[in-house]
Design a protein around this nucleic acid. Structure first.
Lengths: 117, 117
DNA sequence: TGAATATTTGATTAATTGTTCATATGGACA
DNA sequence: TGTCCATATGAACAATTAATCAAATATTCA
């Protein structure tokens, strides 16, 4: 699309637009904000992260806790691993997961505060 | 699926699971957390919300600022309206949008802090 | 009223996503 | 080695989603 034609130029508040633009986060930061939000945009993942914020748990614990298949949990954990939100350690056959990012809990808390309204 | 069969019962740390479960947010709260996160899970919407946190802007301003079609912006604004994250006022032909939820900015700020790593 | 302009809306389409099922991997232990 | 069990992974499928295009509203102004 042609961004000069979004509307008649006289109607754009050019000064305000430029001012906001100069304060805007760079695209990479915006993308990272969107990406971590995307992670929290699924109830299963929110539950997993909240659970792990309280206790280190194995895949099996999480599956039991959430009443979901071990495969579904494992898929979600992979996502959380790939985005460095959780870490894990192996103990025999069992793999224990725990949080590796403190921001996530703040985000969940603010989301919860937002929910109470 | 059968949640009793996710794994051998003896291997679930039942006590830990129960403890976490008792502290877990209720499903409705979890859903609201996920839903507001979903909103922030898109770069266009993050930009819109961040822009509106600084200045009241019209649809046309936002389209110009983001270099996107006015229709695309309008669709996103509808979403933000429906979730009560923005409010608007009409002035003649022009509709001005502004933020109506303070939590959103905190979420974006924490997301940005997370991005700086 | 009719023309012009800002915005909204509905339908469509391509892309993304979360779960399921089946199968693979990896460690423990006989 | 072979079996068991916890976990991981790949393919497939349904559902959701964001942009585009075309068309509808709403407001101003001549």
């Amino acid at each position: 699309m042609d961004r000069d034609d979004v509307c008649e130029i006289e109607h754009v508040n050019e000064k305000a637009v430029q001012e906001v633009k100069s304060n805007m986060f760079d695209d990479q930061t915006i993308l990272k904000i969107a990406n971590i939000s995307k992670i929290l945009g699924d109830a299963t993942r929110v539950k997993i992260l909240f659970a792990l914020s309280q206790k280190e748990l194995c895949v099996c614990d999480l599956a039991s806790l959430l009443g979901m298949s071990q495969s579904a949990i494992s898929h979600q954990l992979r996502l959380l691993r790939n985005t460095n939100l959780v870490k894990f350690r192996r103990e025999g056959k069992v793999v224990y997961y725990s949080l590796s990012d403190e921001h996530v809990i703040k985000l969940i808390e603010i989301g919860a505060a937002h929910a109470q309204e």
